[in-house]
Design a protein around this nucleic acid. Structure first.
Length: 272
DNA sequence: CAAGACTCCTGTCAGC
DNA sequence: TGCTGACAGGAGTCTT
């Protein structure tokens, strides 16, 4: 379940192995992801040089000489660097992008909620990116922004913050965790957040994401030959997955509720 | 416009 | 033990 830190870790992990290389071949074993992979992708990418990899929200943007390959990992996707000859593709290894240094970028995604799209338009204007909210770690995401954006919104704060048009990259885990450390109950209406709430929450979101990216960085070496799963298992979680257990701050039993289709866990004592 | 439902998919696990 | 059904969950799209 890659969240923003995992996506960023992936970006940093694969980039040094393929930056500046040209695409020699593209092997598609399974076209059907969230949207079907363009059957022309091998021709479109052929001999194109990878300039850089950027990230926007949870989208990885592979910048080639003419165009961008946009990859989203969905719920269960991962990318790793592999040797296309020596490393036997495993179940759900759907795509290999083979570079001229004999390494390949291998896309793995059991649930196939991921996406691989080619675009030649200015990437920030792409339909899927144009209306996204600010990056959570950028200066554009601050208390003032959150306060203004939340005015007159009746949605629960938990669902509000997970809307990528408000801010990108805050998935279920980090929404739960940041609400706990900011002392805000997930069911609170967004419009009822105080300025102080916004200050606290923005700070906590940045803190938890930055810490997670830092921890993800420790697993970078595993990208070559390893399973490539950075995982937030190293992340210390206060509430996510701990329903029924004691709050680490006050000992109250953590409560689990459902908002939308997502589970929220919170401390009824610490979060108001 | 905002909000909620629905949808894609498979590994995992509870219940029988 | 093996089957069945519920569930998780990002985010685009559709409906209200």
């Amino acid at each position: 379940m890659p969240e923003l830190p995992e996506v960023e870790t992936t970006r940093r992990g694969v980039l040094p192995h393929i930056k500046g290389k040209r695409v020699r071949d593209v092997l598609i074993r399974h076209h059907q992801l969230r949207w079907p992979i363009d059957a022309q992708l091998p021709e479109l990418l052929s001999n194109k040089k990878l300039i850089d990899i950027q990230r926007r929200g949870k989208y990885l943007l592979f910048q080639f000489t003419h165009g961008y390959l946009m990859i989203h990992l969905g719920m269960s996707g991962s990318l790793r660097i592999a040797n296309p000859v020596a490393d036997e593709p495993k179940l759900h290894d759907h795509v290999d992008i083979i570079f001229n240094n004999t390494l390949c970028l291998r896309f793995h995604d059991p649930r196939r909620f991921g996406a691989i799209l080619w675009t030649e338009e200015p990437v920030e204007q792409h339909k899927l990116l144009a209306k996204l909210g600010p990056e959570p770690l950028s200066n554009d995401f601050d208390a003032e922004y959150l306060f203004k954006a939340s005015r007159k919104r009746s949605k629960a704060v938990k669902q509000f913050i997970m809307d990528s048009h408000i801010v990108v990259g805050v998935g279920n885990i980090y929404a739960n965790e940041s609400l706990f450390t900011a002392g805000i109950r997930p069911t609170r209406q967004a419009g009822k957040l105080t300025r102080k709430n916004c200050e606290d929450w923005v700070a906590e979101i940045k803190k938890v994401l930055a810490r997670s990216i830092k921890q993800g960085g420790t697993t970078l070496r595993d990208f070559v030959g390893g399973d490539g799963q950075p995982g937030y298992f190293a992340q210390q979680l206060f509430v996510y997955g701990r329903a029924g257990e004691a709050c680490v701050q006050c000992g109250t039993i953590l409560k689990e509720i459902r908002q939308g289709q997502r589970s929220s866990v919170y401390c009824p004592q610490c979060q108001k």
